[in-house]
Amino acid sequence: MSVPCKFERSLLSHEEHETIRLTHHPAIYDVEAAELEAMRPRLRKMRDKERTLSRQKLREGRGKGEARGASFPGTAEHASERKQVFAAALKRVNKELGRLHNLAARTAHIEAARKALALHRAANFMAYPAAEATANEGMVPKASPRRRKIITGAQIGRVSQSKKAAQAVRDARGDRTSSQS
């Protein structure tokens, strides 16, 4: 349960109150993250000290433990309330640090998403060169990789002429075997 600021002021010393004051609502937003990080161990140390004093007082009250040391500090009679004040301050600091961390992460994610969207949009639109007259040779025939066979015209005529002559000899003999197939 939250504790009013006036009650906190009555429980704490001036230095402790100045530390705690920075953890309250309007002032915590003006504190830098590095200062909050430095404040966290101090608050933990204060809370742990008060928790120890509170537990010792409870043990003494139940008769389970003897008094530690010669005397307790003057603030020891309200140790549990002081512990609650420091614990609440620590909780506020942790919550603010978490909020700042999430804000930084969200900002980084938004920037990454915007960059990815820009890259995606840039990939969709191809930049074509302008259509204008260019000094170009045009299409060039590509040489065939097959070996070229050169046959002279005389050789072509000789083969076809020998076929004609062989057919004429068969026809003159009256050999009909070639035409009956």
Rank of each mutant, 00 (worst) to 15 (best):
R55D: 15
D175S: 04
A154E: 12
T177V: 07
H109A: 15
D30H: 11
A33P: 06
R40E: 15
I151M: 02
A165I: 09
E60L: 07
E77M: 07
G153C: 07
L22Y: 01
L43Q: 04
A118R: 06
M139Q: 05
R173M: 10
K163V: 04
S160A: 14
R99P: 00
A116S: 09
E137G: 12
E137W: 05
E50A: 14
L103A: 15
R114T: 00
H78D: 13
V3D: 05
Q84G: 12
G69W: 06
A127G: 01
S144M: 04
G157P: 03
Y128D: 04
S181E: 11
L97S: 08
R21A: 13
P26F: 02
A113R: 10
L97R: 02
A166K: 13
A123L: 13
V169P: 01
T23A: 12
H25F: 06
R47C: 07
R42M: 12
E32Q: 05
R40D: 06
K163M: 11
I150R: 11
V140C: 08
Q84R: 15
A172N: 03
R121D: 08
A131W: 00
I151P: 00
E32A: 15
R176S: 12
G157R: 15
G74V: 08
M126S: 14
R42W: 06
P141C: 03
L22Q: 09
C5L: 09
L11P: 02
G65K: 07
E50H: 07
R148S: 03
F72G: 10
R170T: 12
A172C: 02
G61F: 09
A131F: 07
D48E: 15
K164H: 10
A67M: 11
R40Q: 14
Q56E: 14
Q167G: 05
R173G: 01
S10M: 10
K91M: 10
A122F: 08
I150Y: 08
D175H: 02
P4K: 07
A76Y: 04
E111K: 14
I28W: 06
K115L: 10
R9T: 05
T107R: 15
V159C: 01
L117K: 15
R106P: 00
S13E: 09
V93P: 03
A135H: 05
A113K: 09
A127R: 10
A165K: 07
R42Y: 01
E81A: 12
A133R: 15
A79W: 00
E35K: 13
R114Y: 10
L58G: 08
Q84H: 14
S160D: 03
M139T: 05
R146I: 02
V3T: 11
G153D: 13
Q161M: 03
I110E: 15
V140K: 08
M46I: 01
K49L: 12
A67S: 11
A33I: 06
E18K: 12
G74E: 08
H120C: 02
E132S: 09
L43Y: 03
G63N: 09
V85W: 05
V93S: 06
L119A: 13
K115A: 08
E32V: 02
L36K: 07
A89M: 05
L58M: 13
A133P: 04
R55W: 04
Q180M: 04
S13V: 05
L117M: 08
I156R: 15
D30M: 14
H120Y: 06
R158Q: 14
N102C: 07
S71C: 01
A135C: 07
L117A: 10
L53F: 01
Q180D: 14
A89Y: 10
Q180A: 09
